[in-house]
């Protein structure tokens, strides 16, 4: 999963967190897609999932705080998108517990996470940068 310059929104804190998210999701995809036996990669999978769960929340909180600070008009809509994604992650976390981290479900989660993240950062998040670049006017 490649980080692209076009994903930057021009806010150092947010861009740094996005880059870190891309790096972590990319590592996660590499791990789940590697040829190693599932049992062997499971500890790495669990570790990444734990990190992601915490980091996604930190990042969403920081991004939402920034939107509030600049008076971003799409704040509420954006907050709802974040919330829906957090709910989805939570549902997967419960499913992982129930199924003792089945390969099938972890793979499914990985595919969804990757596509969601690319679209969100390349699309929705760009609107925050655009708003700021226009001098914070609608």
């Amino acid at each position: 999963m490649m980080w692209k310059e076009k994903y930057k929104i021009g806010v150092e804190l947010i861009d740094g967190q996005h880059r870190e998210l891309f790096r972590r999701v990319s590592d996660f995809v590499k791990t789940v897609q590697s040829e190693d036996k599932w049992d062997e990669k499971l500890s790495k999978v669990k570790e990444t999932l734990e990190f992601m769960k915490a980091y996604v929340i930190t990042h969403f909180d920081d991004e939402e705080a920034y939107q509030k600070e600049i008076g971003y008009p799409g704040y509420e809509r954006h907050r709802q998108i974040h919330q829906r994604f957090k709910d989805e992650v939570q549902k997967y976390a419960e499913k992982f517990q129930e199924e003792s981290y089945s390969e099938e479900t972890v793979q499914e989660f990985g595919g969804k996470l990757m596509a969601w993240l690319i679209n969100h950062v390349a699309g929705e998040d760009q609107k925050i940068g655009d708003f700021q670049n226009r001098g914070g006017s609608v």
């Binding site: 499914e108 595919g111 596509a115």
Partner: peptide, 24 residues
């Protein structure tokens, strides 16, 4: 293109990513 990795089969990862793109 999305993952930057060579994909070989239509497994759960690939089909889930495709499903999410169509969802978007």
């Amino acid at each position: 293109i999305m993952s930057g990795m060579e994909m070989k089969k239509l497994d759960s990862f690939v089909s889930s990513a495709l499903g999410e793109v169509v969802n978007i």
